[in-house]
Simulated scan of single mutants.
Amino acid sequence: MARVASLYLPQLAIERLRQAERSAAPPERPWSSAPILPPAVDDDPGACSVPRGGGWRPGARWAQGGALGRDKDAEAAQIGRLPAHQRPPMRELGRRSEVAEHPFRAMPSDEGGRAATPIAPARWPLWGRPTALIERTGQREVVTAACPVALALDLVPGMAAAHGRALVADLDVREADAAADQAWLGRLALHAVGYWTPVASASGTDGLWLDMTGSSHLFGGEARFCRRVLRFLARIGFTARIAVAGTPGAAHALARFSGEVVTLLPPGKEVAALSGLPVAALRLESQALAAAARFGLERVGDLLPMPRGPLARRLGLGAIARLDQALGRAAEPIMPVIPFEAPEVSRRLLEPIGTPEAIAQLIADLVDDLVAVLQRRGLGVRAAAHRLRG
């Protein structure tokens, strides 16, 4: 019984860019909501910028009435009547070596709620500002990805970049890098092959397929496996959703359109689970999606009762193939990621050889070819095998 997991990373491009910025330019001081304590006060009177000829230091206006050192109870009462932000710190009362916190840091906001959440520094625009990634096609700029802040402001992928700038004045626009995204997915697939499942493959530009057939019991079941994968991605700063089904197409559709973080579909329930999903869940071409909208076909369940002939004429044979693959009626092989491909060289001869001299010369030529391949890839060799085919 086949079981396939589809891992979906909806914010892959934005979160990868944020990780790259964080590793490339770390801040001088780790950002934290805790108050930063001022430096300790120097006990040397000569280091004070205020002369000691009888004048008061700044902030000690409460003692200018001449009552300092005469009536301690009156002083305490006078200090108690002052607002919290005007009361003198302990170092003004004689304990000058004690570090005091700033009086305004712990005060509530003007609205009466909790203290305002600190704003991230301006050098981290991906943390606080709406960010969108664009791709240039000729003279046209199209939004390919948007952060959650931008999505909340009605910026969606596929929108023109000029429209997005008009909607959000402080929009931070970056260049999309599809090659870097695919390279990161490739590294994640290699990690999956080494630690999760023996077969993994990229599914589009925003996720992976993981073949879990016969391996889920090694992690305590499918539910625990999904939680483990999500925890790993959360630790490295990526948002993900995952779905497990009997076919790659069903798992792909549920991971992106079910609305759940983890979806576990029992075997044989693909028809019931996919019927309520939009037609776009079948990974159809743009022409097929436009034709489905023109004929009023909005859900996958609308395609199931239709005869194959009229459906193929309206949406094309590709739509029929995708529907059969999602429902398990047609096979959809997963092209696995190979962790390492051993270098190999070969020679094709016009005529067979049989003399020891000719065989030795052929082996020497193959060794020279193999050395060139190893030099290009930066590899070495401990043992090499040669095969002669008649």
Rank of each mutant, 00 (worst) to 15 (best):
V271S: 05
L362N: 04
P10C: 01
T131N: 09
L366E: 07
M212W: 14
I359S: 10
I119V: 10
V337F: 04
I320R: 07
G158C: 05
V300R: 11
R377Q: 13
H386G: 08
R228M: 09
L284F: 04
A358G: 03
P343M: 14
S109F: 12
E175G: 14
R231W: 13
V143P: 06
R187E: 05
A24T: 13
G328T: 00
G378Q: 11
R16F: 13
R174M: 07
L282C: 02
G204F: 01
C48Q: 13
S23N: 06
G59A: 01
R256L: 12
F232W: 09
Q11R: 15
L264H: 02
A255Y: 00
R87C: 11
G138A: 02
L218Y: 03
V300E: 04
D71V: 02
T263S: 07
D71Q: 02
V271Y: 06
G214E: 04
R329H: 15
V300F: 15
C226V: 03
P45G: 08
K269L: 05
G354S: 04
W56A: 08
A25R: 05
P356K: 01
A364D: 11
I359M: 07
P121A: 13
V50E: 12
P336Y: 08
P10H: 01
S33L: 11
A331M: 10
P108K: 01
L167D: 15
A166E: 12
L188E: 02
R70F: 12
E92R: 15
L254H: 06
L7M: 02
L282Y: 01
G276R: 08
A5Q: 00
R377W: 10
